[in-house]
Each structure stands twice: as C-alpha cells, then as structure tokens.
C-alpha cells in the first residue's frame, strides 16, 4: 500500500511540475511580448518597458520560470495591472472559496443520487428502468451546461420565487448560509451533468461485477439475492467509483466555468474568463495552478481511500 501511494505521490509532484511548465509556456513564451499583451496596444513604450522589468522578462527563460515557480510557492502571486492594483493571491483564493461552495453543494447532491441510479440501472441491466435511466443520463450528458443553465433560469426561475435566477450579489463578505439560496440553481445545473457521468460509470461497474465468477459462487452458496448484491457485488463495484468521483472533479471544474458565467456567479471560473478578457496573464497562471492543485489533491485523496478499501492493492 505504501508503495502504491508513494508512486501516486511521485505522480502528483511530476504533474504539478509538468503543468507549471505548460502554463509557463502557454502564458509566457507563446505570446511573445507578454508585457505588450498585458497592457494592450494603446499603452506607451515606457509603461511596457517598466512592466517587463517588473515581470522579469529581461531575464533568460529558465531564470524566469524558476523565479515564477519560486514566487508562486512562497505565496507571492503578483498584482493586477489595472489600478487599484490588488494582490492576485487574495482575489484568487477568495474566488476559489466561492467556487468551492458551489462544488460542495453539487457533490452533496450528485454523489448519492448518481450512485443510486447507477446501481439500480446496473442491477436491472436491459430492463425498462435501466433503459430509462441510461437514456436520460445520456441525454443530460449531451446537453452543454449553458443550455441546461439557460433552460433552468428561463423556465424554472422565472416561474418560481424559490430559486433566484441570478447568483450575482455574492461578494467577498457573503457567508455560506447567505449565499445558499443563490447556489441552488447553479448547483443543480452542475449536478445534472455529474449525475449522468457518475451514474453511467457506476452502472458499467455493477454490470461488470455481476458477471464475475464469484457472484456465481455467492449465489450457489444459497445466499439471498439481497446479500449477494450488497455484500458481494456492491463492495467490489463501488470501490472504483471513488476514482470515478475523483476524476469527475476535472469535469466539475470545467462545468463550473460555464455555469458561473451563465449565472453571473463570482467564482474562480468567471474570474478566469474575466482574466482572459483583461489579458491578465499572472492571474490566469494563478487560477490554472490552483485548479490543477485541487484536482490533484482530490485524486490523491481518492487513491488513499482506494488503497485502504481495496485489499488487492497491498501486494501490487
């Protein structure tokens, strides 16, 4: 087990380095004159020159990369360029918290529902209920988040008082409980996508396990169907679901970018879009790095849980 986790940890570190390089290349090397891009075409030559120095663009690339990574690790993520110049780290973390709320509500709704649906569909493979669940989840998975989002806003929210249509108005000072009413609709939008994703994979897992020889052994022990399913099948079918859920964080995050944009929710996703709009490269870098870290931590936690629950890991 230790060996397995160690390997995962090595992968974790490797991926962080890899993505930081990727981000660096995308935002620092590819664009050519970074300072010019950030400041726009109208900016004066002296302003551009000053920013170059501030960003260290006069240094060789290797030094630039190391400086950037070092600063980032130390918590110095730079400042925005339009006045009033703010600390990027502060903004990003504050927005990340808001996105976290949304993700939390989504997961709390999505995980139990989707696993239940997936298990039911898997146990009833080929039957009516399975076809229904499968068709619905396939359709929902096919709808882009902005389509479902706009549908919910325009049909559901406008016809009920319970769900506010817009999530604007959540700021740095808002508490979770204050924000909660405004979280429902975006969270439901994200949930729909996640449910379909997790349920489909859970279904596949259950079907695969049901075909295994040990299920036959269990049935021929004379165990009641209920016991066969709960004790023998689900145990093996649900262990990989942990990984599925962890893998869905990436899915969730891209979904959130779109959903925040649709609802005007001030989370990390809408910050990213704004940063791209404003050509705020350091902020883009910070957002991507935070996102990757979250995904990797989620995966690592899932691996740990997996290795605890799955006795087969111990030897491999």
């Amino acid at each position: 087990m230790g060996r397995f986790l160690l390997r995962r940890l090595a992968f974790f570190v490797f991926t962080l380095i890899f993505t930081s390089l990727l981000v660096f290349v995308l935002t620092r090397v590819l664009p050519g004159d970074v300072a010019r891009i950030i400041l726009g075409r109208e900016a004066g030559e002296d302003q551009v020159a000053a920013l170059r120095v501030e960003l260290g663009l006069d240094q060789p690339l290797v030094i630039q990369y190391l400086d950037w990574v070092g600063d980032f690790a130390r918590g110095d993520w730079g400042k925005t360029f339009v006045s009033p110049r703010q600390d990027i780290r502060e903004i990003v973390l504050q927005r990340a918290e808001k996105s976290g709320w949304l993700a939390l509500v989504t997961l709390v709704m999505a995980v139990p529902i989707s696993i239940t649906l997936g298990v039911i569909a898997g146990l009833r493979e080929g039957k009516f209920l399975d076809s229904l669940i499968s068709l619905l989840s396939l359709s929902v998975v096919s709808l882009p988040e902005f389509v479902t989002g706009l549908f919910l806003i325009n049909i559901v929210a406008r016809n009920s008082d319970f769900f506010p249509a817009s999530s604007s108005g959540i700021g740095p000072g808002t508490t979770f409980m204050e924000a909660l009413p405004k979280l429902w609709l975006p969270a439901i939008t994200a949930t729909l996508v996640l449910i379909a994703y997790i349920a489909r994979l859970t279904r596949a897992g259950v079907i695969e396990e049901l075909k295994r020889d040990y299920v036959r052994t269990a049935v021929l022990k004379g165990l009641p169907y209920r016991v066969v399913v709960i004790k023998h099948v689900l145990r093996n079918a649900l262990i990989p679901t942990i990984t599925v859920i962890a893998n869905s964080t990436g899915w969730l995050i891209s979904g959130l970018v779109v959903i925040e944009f649709v609802y005007g929710y001030r989370g990390l996703g809408s910050l990213l879009i704004a940063a791209i709009e404003n050509r705020n490269l350091p902020q883009i870098q910070a957002i991507v790095m935070v996102t990757v870290s979250v995904i990797l931590v989620a995966n690592f936690l899932a691996d740990m849980l997996y290795s605890i629950l799955n006795p087969r890991i111990t030897l491999s």
């Binding site: 990727l22 990436g250 995050i253 891209s254 970018v257 991507v288 995904i295």
Partner: peptide
C-alpha cells in the same frame, strides 16, 4: 496533461 480539464 489529462489532469487538466480540456476546457481550461
């Protein structure tokens, strides 16, 4: 690379 969401 696949750890990064495609949309991002």
């Amino acid at each position: 690379f696949l750890a990064l969401p495609a949309l991002l």
